[in-house]
Design a protein around this nucleic acid. Sequence first.
DNA 1: GTAAGTACGCACAGAAATGTAAGTATCAAG
DNA 2: CTTGATACTTACATTTCTGTGCGTACTTAC
Lengths: 134, 134
Amino acid sequence: MSDAASTPLDDASLSGRFLRGDLLSANCPSRDVLKHMTSRWGVLVLIALEHQTLRFSALRRMVGGVSERMLAQTLKWLEGDGLVERIEYDVVPPHVEYRLTPLGQEGAAKVRILADWIEGNMPAINQHWQSRQG
Amino acid sequence: MSDAASTPLDDASLSGRFLRGDLLSANCPSRDVLKHMTSRWGVLVLIALEHQTLRFSALRRMVGGVSERMLAQTLKWLEGDGLVERIEYDVVPPHVEYRLTPLGQEGAAKVRILADWIEGNMPAINQHWQSRQG
DNA sequence: GTAAGTACGCACAGAAATGTAAGTATCAAG
DNA sequence: CTTGATACTTACATTTCTGTGCGTACTTAC
């Protein structure tokens, strides 16, 4: 019997796994990036910015339900990971634009694949919920 | 000037958006599914189950760091969405297996695309962190 | 007899995410 | 001169998530 499920962490080169990025290993820093990208608002921000540069308020109006606080927080996370770029114009009524970096473009595309799949399969999933009522 | 960021919620057929799945709309149920699939352990469970059926304990050993409680919780979410199937054998030492449904297979593939991208780009992201120290 | 494995459920607690409300500085509109 | 828009920040409250530890019912191993 193959025992594929045994102790993936005890294998050699654990540090190598972390540098390379191994999500199945506990404490791998890649999980932080995953957390940012898949956070409640992270996904939606990436998708909203995929095809356009947006200002803070415009982005907030676009992503239904975000609070200012959370939008700012999320943008900082993504900026910290190098996925989003913040461009500030030093004018009197504040003017700041957000856009994806090349890295962010790539990442957003992957996120969108997942989002599109979910949106497209909502009927099937809803149907599953219906059939298990009771 | 195009104003693409204006009030996406006020458009007609809001209920249609929900049935179809529109993540940018607040309160759309698709956000729940997204939450389950992108939850801390949801991603990892989907990936772990993608190519094999696993028992509870084996799954737990495979996904580094999950508690029993969270694994059970996550599996229930995914089962509720019709992505994971629970197969129980009525034997004396409990024996339960978890596997992906066809829908789950599809979804897991999308999640894996994202996970693989993150794992593959960790060096670039880490580098970005280095360069912004200070 | 004692410990461990199996697949959880339950209760409590702490951590983390998120929401709400208010404040900052400046300008334009009414 | 009050309101609204801009892009946030900070404090506080709440909700949600996640972890820890214990209990279950039964069997095998020591």
